[in-house]
C-alpha cells in the first residue's frame, strides 16, 4: 500500500497539521457547551480569576475535560495499534475483546462483595479486570489449527462481554447502592472528572507510552512472522508478553480515567496506516494523535446531541466506530 505521506518531511509536517487541528478542537471544547463562553474568559480564568460561574466552569470542567480527552485518546490510539499488531487482526479493539466489560465487572464485584470505594484501588481493579478478560479472549481466540483468527477472537470477545455485562447487571440489581457508585464507570465520559484522576494515572500512561515506542521496532520485526522474528534472534514470547502488559496498562488507565470507551483503538491505526505506511513507530504516533482528535470530537458531539443531557462518550465512539468496523470487516478479511 502506498502511504499518503511518503517521506519524513511530509510526515513531520503532517504531525504539525494534526496538532493544529487538535488545538482547534481543544479550543472549541473549552468554549462551547451548555454554557458558551469566550476565549477571553478562558484566558482570564487563569490570569485574572474572579470566581464567576464561567471561570469556575472553565477551570473545573472544561480544561480537565480537554486534558482527559487528549490523554485518553492518545492511550487508546496506541493501545489499538499494539492490539492489532499483537493479534494480527485488523478488527481488534478493547471494546470488542471484552477488556472494557472485564474492567467494569471487576469494579462492580469489588464494590458489591468487598465494599471497596477507594478510587485508586478501582484503578488497579480495573487493570486486573481488563487483563483477565484479555487473557481469556486471547487464549480462546488461539485455539485450533489456524491459531489466532479474527472471527474467533471477535466471537470470544462477544461472549465474554455478554457474560460480564449480565453478571454486572445482576449484581447491580441485587445491590442498588452500588449502582450509584458505579454508574460513573459504566457510562464512559471524559467530563465530570477531576484532573486529580488523570494525574494519579498519568505516570502509568507515560510509562506505557514510552514502552510502546520502544516496542515499535521489535513489533515491526514480529509482524514479519513469528518464525522470521525468531530466526533473527528475537525472543518473541517476551515481546508478546511485554506488549500485552503495555496494552493492559494503556486501556486500563484509559478506563480508569474515562470509563469504557470503545472503537477509538479500532479506527485510528487504520487511518494512521493509510497516512504513513508501514513504519510502526510513525503509525503509533499518528494513531495516538488521531485518537486524541477523535475523542475530542466525540466529546463535543456527545455534548450537543442530547443537549442539555450528555450522551456517554463510549456510545458516540461506538456509533462512529461501527460503520468503520463493518467497512474493515468487509474489506480486510476477504483474504481469509
Amino acid at each position: 500500500m502506498r502511504a499518503l505521506l511518503p517521506n519524513s518531511f511530509s510526515k513531520i509536517s503532517g504531525i504539525f497539521i494534526i496538532l493544529l487541528f487538535m488545538a482547534y478542537l481543544a479550543y472549541a471544547s473549552l468554549i462551547f457547551g451548555v454554557i458558551d463562553t469566550s476565549w477571553q474568559n478562558a484566558v482570564e480564568a487563569y490570569t485574572n480569576y474572579n470566581g464567576t460561574n464561567e471561570h469556575i466552569i472553565i477551570k473545573e470542567v472544561r480544561v480537565p475535560r480537554v486534558l482527559n480527552a487528549i490523554a485518553v485518546g492518545f492511550s487508546l490510539g496506541i493501545a489499538g495499534t499494539l492490539l492489532q499488531s499483537l493479534t494480527r487482526n485488523p478488527v481488534a479493539d478493547s471494546e470488542l475483546f471484552g477488556l472494557n466489560a472485564g474492567a467494569a465487572l471487576f469494579v462492580v464485584i469489588a464494590i458489591t462483595f468487598f465494599g471497596i470505594s477507594s478510587l485508586t484501588l478501582f484503578t488497579w481493579i480495573a487493570f486486573a479486570g481488563s487483563a483477565i478478560a484479555g487473557i481469556i479472549v486471547y487464549i480462546l481466540g488461539s485455539f485450533g489449527r489456524e491459531g489466532l483468527s479474527p472471527v474467533k477472537l471477535t466471537l470470544a470477545g462477544a461472549a465474554i462481554t455478554a457474560f460480564a455485562a449480565s453478571m454486572r447487571h445482576g449484581m447491580l440489581v441485587i445491590n442498588e447502592k452500588a449502582l450509584d457508585e458505579v454508574l460513573f464507570w459504566l457510562s464512559g465520559s471524559v467530563g465530570g472528572r477531576n484532573v486529580d484522576y488523570l494525574i494519579s494515572v498519568l505516570p502509568y500512561m507515560l510509562l506505557a507510552w514510552i514502552a510502546a515506542f520502544l516496542l515499535a521496532r521489535p513489533i515491526q520485526t514480529l509482524l514479519m512472522g513469528e518464525d522470521v522474528a525468531k530466526g533473527l534472534g528475537q525472543r518473541t514470547m517476551l515481546v508478546k508478553i511485554i506488549t500485552g502488559v503495555v496494552i493492559v496498562l494503556l486501556s486500563g488507565s484509559a478506563v480508569a480515567v474515562a470509563g469504557p470507551i470503545g472503537f477509538v483503538g479500532l479506527i485510528t491505526p487504520h487511518l494512521a496506516r493509510y497516512l504513513v505506511g508501514n513504519d510502526t513507530r510513525w503509525i503509533m504516533l499518528y494513531s495516538g494523535l488521531l485518537g486524541s482528535i477523535l475523542l475530542l470530537a466525540a466529546d463535543l458531539g456527545a455534548r450537543f446531541i442530547a443537549m442539555p443531557a450528555e450522551v456517554p462518550i463510549g456510545v458516540m465512539t461506538a456509533l462512529i466506530g461501527i460503520p468503520f468496523f463493518i467497512y474493515v470487516a468487509r474489506k480486510g478479511l476477504s483474504k481469509g
Partner: peptide, 14 residues
C-alpha cells in the same frame, strides 16, 4: 458473524 457482532453493538449504542 463479524458484521452481526458489529450491528449488535451499534444497536445497543443507539
Amino acid at each position: 458473524v463479524l458484521i452481526g457482532v458489529g450491528i449488535k453493538i451499534a444497536a445497543s449504542a443507539i
